[in-house]
């Protein structure tokens, strides 16, 4: 089995990432020890650092100031972690990054305030990197939050078109992939064409990750299905495979629709829903769509100079759809 870090072979970025924890930690310094514990709960755990790595890889194509790059990388990681704090409150998740979630370890309000604290520290870092970076980041954050709101608005919407769903994913998921590349381009002074290629790569990469995850969530036995998958369904949040079945013609779609519209779903009904999705071509369709995104991501990299950074980005695109867990 491949481990998450395998794709990152660019030595300079690997080396910079080793210094990331320190920068993140210094951004979280605060007098109150308990606040510090809450704020550090997740960053202290092992993380794949996909977003900071993406940012640093993008910056490899130009030339940036290392201290600035590290600050931006730390800000990106903090933004991501802040969004995890809040996601876990909304999703009632009890585990995260191989341990308890903040809301489970403390309370929902602690996780909410903790997320705001991380967000504030992240934006303070971003604001220290100049007007352009600050504006770019703020626009991305807005897109992210608007995407999340839109997703919630579609809760229990059995009529949602697939295109709308993908559009929401682009705002909600892909934004936090695009932003690192945008900022990498700005802070390392890339020419606009190169920046644009990297941003396009990142958008497709984000979608590929998400869609591949959505398909993975339905594999395994029904009893062991990703807990969040079925929780999401009973909370009216439908992923690509579910919507794919709903939009298809035929009995599956109608049957699923009928089940999903019930006021409150039982375990049996959830099991039946999972069985319908698994028995259909939806998972294959999600994987196909993910592969197409990954291919487009790779294609977007054409025109960028060959080198360790490019090789890592290509490997990341391949990795996004080759995971089995």
């Amino acid at each position: 089995m491949r481990s998450a870090g395998d794709w990152l072979t660019c030595p300079h970025v690997v080396e910079l990432l080793l210094r990331l924890d320190e920068v993140v930690a210094s951004a979280l310094l605060v007098a109150d020890p308990e606040t510090h514990r809450v704020a550090s709960h997740l960053v202290a755990r092992r993380s794949k650092h996909v977003r900071p790595a993406l940012f640093l890889l993008a910056a490899e194509f130009g030339c940036g100031v290392e201290t600035e790059l590290l600050r931006a990388a730390a800000a990106l990681e903090l933004l991501h972690v802040a969004s995890l704090y809040h996601d876990d409150v909304v999703d009632r998740a009890t585990t995260r990054r191989g341990g308890t979630s903040v809301n489970a370890a403390w309370t929902n309000s602690v996780a909410t305030a903790g997320g705001v604290f991380l967000f504030a520290r992240a934006t303070a870092l971003l604001a220290s990197l100049g007007e352009e970076v600050n504006r770019t980041a703020s626009a991305a954050v807005t897109r992210l939050c608007t995407g999340q709101l839109r997703e919630v608005e579609h809760a229990y919407d059995v009529d949602i078109p697939l295109e709308e769903h993908l559009d929401i994913l682009a705002g909600k998921t892909a934004t936090l992939f695009e932003l690192p590349c945008r900022l990498g381009g700005q802070l390392a002074g890339l020419v606009p064409a190169q920046s644009a290629s990297l941003v396009e790569y990142a958008r497709e990469l984000g979608l590929a990750f998400q869609l591949a995850d959505d398909a993975l969530d339905f594999t395994g036995t029904v009893e062991r299905l990703g807990k969040t998958t079925l929780t999401d369904i009973s909370q009216g949040i439908y992923s690509f495979p579910v919507i794919h079945v709903l939009r298809g013609s035929g009995r599956d779609g109608k049957h699923l629709r009928d089940l999903l519209r019930r006021a409150r779903l039982s375990e049996d009904e959830l099991g039946a829903i999972a069985a319908i999705v698994r028995g259909s071509d939806a998972l294959a369709a999600a994987r196909r769509q993910a592969s197409e995104c990954a291919t487009r991501a790779r294609d977007a990299l054409r025109g960028l100079p060959e080198g360790p950074a490019l090789r890592s980005l290509r490997a990341l695109a391949a990795f996004s759809v080759s995971r089995s867990h």
């Binding site: 809040h86 409150v89 909304v90 009632r92 929902n108 909410t112 705001v116 967000f119 934006t123 980041a137 703020s138 626009a139 954050v141 807005t142 992210l144 939050c145 608007t146 999340q148 709101l149 919630v152 809760a155 807990k227 079925l230 929780t231 009973s234 909370q235 009216g236 409150r264 779903l265 039982s266 375990e267 959830l270």
Partner: peptide, 26 residues
């Protein structure tokens, strides 16, 4: 239990709070 329906209040409070925060930042 995974059959538990959504906690709409928290969902809205977090999402709306985040949305307003993002607009403040912007």
């Amino acid at each position: 239990p995974r059959t538990r329906p959504a906690h709409w209040g928290n969902m809205l409070a977090v999402m709306v709070g985040d949305f307003l925060l993002s607009r403040a930042y912007e």
